[in-house]
């Protein structure tokens, strides 16, 4: 396990993800300018030693907007990973443990999974009205079914293990069986899956902001900065390019972390490396 977690790819992931998380958390201290203050004298300015990543069409500092925007993107990604993790774990546990609930729950999940996740999230976010919470709710609904599937699979494997049968034979009740024997066995796949959901949610949030159903302006998110920069792509490409690179770093970092965790937690996968 230690060997996997000190591998170069895992450490690269940690570095990429950690770098942006730290920068976003320190946004209040390290951002050189106010992210929402207009300054028309410097509009569409190229990157220079005052505005490191240039300015946008309102003369706002792109770097400062990215730092604050990364905060929102991370907050949304984390919230979606946690909420869809809890909801998916409960649904998957219920479906995997009580075979009577299984067909019903899984049909609902299949139905939700039949929609393109992004379209469902866009429609839900628009329906509920633009806000950060709406985006979190919409993405949680769109991505819970996948987690539920993973969890259900893990529960089905765990409940068939001899040690679970043995615990049942010595008289352990359902609650104890689930808490001490089934859930711990399902924790690893769940954590790995939610790392990927974190990454997917950050990409999806960018799409929602890009098409205009994300958190309302002037609040920056990484996706809304890209959308802002789109019309000025020819004169001021930095507005669009920089936040995309930040998203890619964040998502790549999370994917590397997810791969590393998967390999560390699942010894069978180690052979494949």
């Amino acid at each position: 396990m230690i060997a996997v977690l000190t591998r170069r790819s895992f450490l690269t992931g940690l570095l990429l993800f950690g770098l942006i998380v730290v920068a976003a958390m320190l946004a209040g201290w390290i951002a050189p300018f106010d992210p929402v203050k207009n300054n028309y004298r410097y509009r569409l300015g190229a990157p220079n030693d005052i505005f490191l990543v240039g300015t946008d069409r309102f003369g706002r500092d792109v770097l400062s907007r990215m730092l604050y925007g990364a905060r929102v993107s991370l907050r949304i990604g984390l919230a979606v990973a946690v909420l869809s993790g809890v909801a998916g774990a409960l649904a998957g546990l219920a479906a995997g443990w009580w075979s009577r609930a299984d067909p019903w729950l899984m049909r609902v999940m299949d139905g939700l999974m039949a929609f393109p996740g992004l379209l469902l999230a866009i429609a839900l976010a628009a329906t509920l009205g633009p806000s950060e919470i709406t985006v979190v709710v919409a993405l949680t609904v769109a991505y819970t079914p996948r987690t539920a599937r993973v969890m259900r699979g893990a529960v089905l494997v765990a409940r068939a293990q001899d040690y679970v049968e043995a615990a049942r034979a010595v008289g352990a009740r359902t609650g104890r069986l689930l808490r001490h024997h089934v859930l711990p066995a399902c924790a690893a796949p769940l954590v790995v899956q939610q790392t990927y959901v974190f990454a997917i949610a950050i990409l999806a949030e960018a799409v929602l902001s890009f098409v205009g159903v994300g958190p309302p302006p002037p609040q920056p998110t990484l996706g809304s900065i890209i959308a802002d920069g789109r019309d000025a792509m020819v004169e001021a490409p930095w507005i669009t390019l920089a936040p995309g690179v930040a998203i890619a770093m964040l998502v790549l970092g999370l994917n590397l972390l997810g791969d590393g965790l998967r390999d560390a937690l699942d010894p069978r996968m180690r052979r494949m490396l």
């Binding site: 960018a206 890009f210 890209i226 789109r230 792509m233 995309g244 998502v251 994917n255």
Partner: peptide
């Protein structure tokens, strides 16, 4: 798979 596809389109 870590790149936002709409952004890649813009690039």
């Amino acid at each position: 798979l870590s790149l936002p596809d709409f952004w890649l389109g813009l690039v």
